[in-house]
Design a binder for these strands. Sequence first.
RNA 1: GCAGGUGUGGCGGAACGGUAGACGCGCCGGUCUUAGGAACCGGUAUCUUCGAUGUGCAGGUUCAAGUCCUGUCACCUGCACCA
Length: 801
Amino acid sequence: MKYDFKNIEKKWQDRWDKENAFAASDDYSKKKYFALVEFPYPSGQGLHVGHPRSYTALDIIARKRRMEGYNVLYPMGWDAFGLPTENFAIKNHIHPSVVTEKNVARFKSQLKSLGLSFDWSREINTTDPDYYKWTQWIFIQLFKKGLAYKKEMSVNFCTSCKCVLANEEVVNGVCERCGSEVVHKVKSQWMLKITEYAQRLIDDLADVDFIERVKTQQINWIGRSVGAEVDFGTTAGDKITIFTTRPDTLFGATYMVIAPEHALIEQWKDKLTNYDDIIAYREEAAKKSDFERTELVQKDKTGVRLEGVRAVNPVNGKEIPIFVSDYVLATYGTGAIMAVPAHDTRDWDFAKRFDLPIIEVVAGGDVNKEAFTDTETGKMVNSDFLNGLEVSEAKTAVIKWLSDKGIGKQKVNFKLRDWVFSRQRYWGEPIPLVYCEKHGWVPVPESELPLRLPNVESYEPTDNGESPLSSVADWVNTTCPICGAPAKRETDTMPQWAGSSWYFLRYCDPHNKTALASKEALKYWMPVDWYNGGMEHTTLHLLYSRFWAKFLYDIDILDTKEPYAKRTSHGMILGSNGEKMSKSRGNVVNPDDIVNELGADTMRLYEMFIGDFEKSAPWSETSIKGCKRFLERVFGMTELVKDEGVSEKLDIPFNKTIKKVSADIEDMKFNTAIAALMALTNDIYDNGSLTKDEMQTFITLLCPFAPHLCEEINELLGGKDLLSLSKWPEFDESKTKDNEVEIGVQINGKLRSTVKIAVDCDKDTALKLAKGDEKIKAFIDGHDIIKEIFVPGRIINIVVK
RNA sequence: GCAGGUGUGGCGGAACGGUAGACGCGCCGGUCUUAGGAACCGGUAUCUUCGAUGUGCAGGUUCAAGUCCUGUCACCUGCACCA
């Protein structure tokens, strides 16, 4: 019989669909399991072979959980707002909603062809007004709690297109589209106070099961550092407040640096004799991103000395110069630093370049050669009342001294910045606020949500950098919800991150008209039990959605502080040349082709077999054929099924395999789980026959990986019910070990021979057997045995002299 | 620059500190065939056989190191308006 995957796959997909086999039940008395994958952005290119890696992995988890008796929620949806759709729409003069609809249809049919067990009755789409109604509702709650505020922020602005650009659209400082110069322009933007949650976002990581590198990356991104805020006096009379993690080195501060955007520059306009130079420098700096700044600084430190104002070091009253330099970022700390060249590498480089004094205050290095940054070993010197103290003692002492004088205090600082929430774009959720001359910013009444995107003729960016919505007069002009006076709507839209920050909650109760989801549904389904996604989402999406979940917890919508109990990550699938797949490299593999030529089961199996799930792996057109061959062998195995007269030789291999596959799936070691099934297949073919029960066990184990084929074989064996909803096999622990093992015998740590011994063999017997071995004898004879090591079931090592 | 990660045969990758290379691909040989780019069987780390050498490189800890420690090199990913 031929393995006709095309018909088999179609047949079972239709049946699963018809029977709604994978729909999650609303019976909240059952034990639940919520498996989640990041919902895709439905791009015009269609599904990428990378998508199914994550989807298949959690599909396997979801399928296994169903077989273990859980009520499983494994949903899918569309994160459909976004820049590429908008740009495509502008270029081709098609409305973004039309583009989105088309892309979603394609994605959906592609996903369906893979036999993924999603509950399609819970499909969601972030661009659906019934969905974004609740995105807007959450924003209003944030606004009401004071967590949304307006702030002047610099944005990328193309001087030729006259529009605001995303960082991504800026390539080497010029506009990606027209190649013109991009400058930073200050604009008033909506911000969300994620920083208010910084500490909790760190602390609560202790309670969740995230892979370690995700945790560390989040912690580093939030970037908590304990230091001090210190006020420096100036000859102009104003103070400069700085943040430092090294208050202990205060006596070594020989100059100060403020960010080019620092407010004091304007304040000192009349006192600064070189004001023009400073402004020119600021304009140069404005062309660079923060990233470029810190990078370029490394190669070539730049800066301008402020002429006319000097600072005063509060610990010793000495006057020191002030510089502006772009290695100090306005967005971190206070936008001003004290520079201690002896003990900070960047300050040291800058001091060398501008020929500034370097004063050692921690002994232990040679500050003429390089900055000494060790905080563990040194003792304080040249520091008056701190002399002789350890660095850590000096920190405490100086903070006490500063706070006694009222010019400084301990301060916890975070690298994390507030979330810029405004976009000057059409294709996003309208921000549901109205500006009234009398009442300021007023939220749209909740009864009027969703605030729909107006259907406009032109959704192209305006030439003044405002959102396209600003040109829709009858939408912009409205009345104040409080006083009824004429008022204007906010025309900025939300970033794509908004819809994806809470989508998993909507899956719990996707058709609810009166709440984002019912309290009962959220209580039952949340938290997500297992969330898999890409490492590239670790610092943004994962942090943003944790922030929103915490906020919703605070306002009593959610019962759990953390949205995700467990987070894992998959590696990228690269092109066959080992490079990232991209059109320009010409190494893109289309999943449709694979499904057509080799079948969905082969595709699924290969993506799981390709390598370590967490690491990236190159696609191979030849390797995938090995997976097809394996499935054909499995199909062929049905001819080896015998009703009677079958030996029990396969007992141990089967029990071993059930144990290994069960454990490997939990550890996401899909590649070794499949390898074990392949090895078992080899055993079965060597054996020449197997029982019907064994065949049944085999297909049950393989079912999560290759569900269509296994359903088909199940039916051939006489099964009427869906194999996908049958019971996961159990194993007999006592039958998972062979009675006899072959273990290595080493002499001085080098393998010299092997011996076969019983599994429960004791040390004396084992060593006796080993010493009886001809090869071993030759190594022992004439030598003294110093030590004998025996690790049961593993190794014998005899140390001789 | 900052942060995170990776490095093992010809290739993808396996290895609770305990026989390095499971499983698969590829390759070599064979069987069957008019034919094979099908299927099946056997072999396959390197070196000149005995034996020795092998997990990016250099040290260290240990009876024993791919695995632990120190240093070093190379490559990959993210960096806040891409998703």
